[in-house]
């Protein structure tokens, strides 16, 4: 049995729009300008037990809404889903005993209390007996390297420390599935890496399945074996991460500046010119066909180089590429 099975999940929100000022307020009072927004429009997928699955997509793509339906926070407008055999929005409580959740922007630890107090409270919430919870806390504290943080009021922890405690809290009751919504939001590179490592370790150690959303492709690259890309409430791509890398994270962007003016018909072999400015050029090339050093060498031949920047395409660009491919197969 798959851990998650979703079929045709949809969610529509009704929003009220209000123009600024007195007139807008009055109009909104008597003739509310209602607008429906389709946040999720028919999402179907499956996830195996113990799998590491990533949801990526830009902000507002519908990732969080999907996760919220799968945890029973939101009623879907249409569609079906089972999570660990439960229908989330009908058997929310039974399901909650078996899954762990972390919402990056909604902390669950009590702000004024040391994390350990919330851990014990969670023990009561999940009805674990005192001995079990004590042993579990000791185990997780070691695994997440938070022993020295447990007695400090949460408000005094750094964001990264807090997030490690948050994830530990969500694992107190031995969930079989962990749903993480933007766990790395706002963290620096080092803290991100640390969080990723611990999540992977818990997956290896306890076989807990992880469904993770992020708008940072790096999270998915480092953690997940399979990826689902969502945009405008629909799945635009799903495959192994290795395949995604092979297909889409192969191109690189180069921006160069020369000491002299660039001719209008500037060209470099093995690259695609995206934009030509007065002194600078923006190009894209595929690393499988043209190695980086070859591109640099050719650019240097073309003139007197002042500056070069090489970067990976952003997630938005990857999604755009995928769209273009779908539009013109």
């Amino acid at each position: 049995m798959p851990a998650i099975r979703a079929e045709g999940l949809r969610k529509t929100f009704v929003t009220r729009r209000k123009a600024a000022g007195l007139r807008g307020s009055l109009r909104a009072l008597f003739h509310p300008d209602r607008q429906t927004v389709e946040a999720v429009r028919g999402i179907s997928f499956e996830m195996e037990e113990g799998e590491l699955l990533g949801f990526i997509g830009p902000n507002g793509a519908g990732k969080s809404t999907t996760i919220k339906m799968l945890t029973g926070i939101l009623y879907p407008t249409a569609g079906q889903a089972t999570v660990l055999g439960f229908v989330p929005w009908e058997q929310r409580q039974q399901l909650a005993y078996r899954i762990g959740t972390v919402f990056g922007q909604r902390p669950q630890l009590w702000y004024h209390l040391p994390a350990i107090d919330t851990f014990y409270l969670f023990g009561k919430i999940y009805e674990l007996d005192d001995r079990t919870i004590r042993r579990r806390i000791a185990f997780l504290a070691e695994a997440f390297e938070i022993e020295h943080l447990l007695e400090t009021p949460v408000r005094k922890l750094s964001l990264g420390q807090r997030m490690r405690c948050e994830i530990a809290a969500s694992l107190l009751h031995h969930p079989r599935l962990l749903l993480l919504d933007e766990p790395s939001i706002g963290l620096d590179v080092v803290a991100k890496q640390r969080i990723r490592d611990t999540i992977r370790r818990m997956n290896e150690l306890e076989g807990v399945g992880v469904l993770l959303t992020s708008h940072d492709a790096g999270d998915i690259e480092a953690l997940c074996r399979r990826v689902i890309i969502i945009n405008h409430g629909q799945i635009v791509y799903q495959d192994k991460v290795s395949a995604l890398k092979r297909r889409y994270l192969t191109s690189k962007l180069v921006e160069v500046r020369y000491a002299h003016q660039v001719p209008r018909d500037f060209r470099v072999e093995g690259t695609q010119v995206l934009k030509i400015g007065r002194y600078g050029v923006k190009l894209r090339f595929d690393t499988r066909q043209t190695p980086v050093e070859a591109v640099i060498a050719r650019l240097a031949e073309a003139g007197n180089l002042v500056d070069v920047t090489i970067s990976d395409p952003s997630l938005e660009e990857v999604i755009r590429t995928i769209y273009q491919e779908q539009a013109e197969p």
Binding site: V14, R16, K18, A20, T65
Partner: peptide, 14 residues
């Protein structure tokens, strides 16, 4: 609770 929108449908100021 069936209508709960999880803060997703905030008033949009135009």
């Amino acid at each position: 609770m069936r209508r709960y929108e999880s803060g997703s449908a905030i008033q949009v100021q135009v």
